[in-house]
Design a protein around this nucleic acid. Structure first.
Length: 109
DNA sequence: CTGATGACGTTGA
DNA sequence: GTCAACGCCATCA
């Protein structure tokens, strides 16, 4: 972690960093964009170090638009607070109009 | 090298 | 349409 930070992680951070304001995406979409469609879990796992980066992990949720990773944030509702701060409606840890707010890297990029 | 873990996704019942 | 189980791949011990 001193110099390299495996390329895989950087790839994830890069894509997540490209997520526009008020938009969200899923781990699978990022994984597929990176060429590792079967490594969706790794995308989320990689986010473990995202807190030390400028990666808006709160904009990344699972395929169902559920804030599965909110438990990994400092507070209990920090992730939801950030999303709501961007105009995203979140109810019961679930993003509303997820399909509309969904940002596809392969479609936008 | 083997085993276990995980912020997911897909398929089957 | 909802719930449960399996699979996949990369990282850590």
């Amino acid at each position: 972690m001193t110099t390299e930070t495996h390329n895989f992680y950087e790839r994830v951070y890069t894509v997540v960093r490209q997520i526009p304001y008020g938009r969200v995406t899923s781990y699978g979409a990022i994984a597929k964009f990176l060429g590792a469609a079967r490594s969706a879990r790794m995308v989320g796992y990689a986010m473990n170090g995202s807190h030390a980066k400028d990666v808006p992990a709160h904009r990344v949720v699972n395929r169902k638009g559920l804030l599965t990773g909110k438990h990994h944030f400092e507070g209990t509702n920090l992730m939801q607070q950030l999303l709501e701060s961007e105009g995203i409606e979140v109810v019961e840890n679930e993003i509303q109009d997820f399909e509309k707010l969904f940002w596809d890297p392969m479609r936008e990029l």
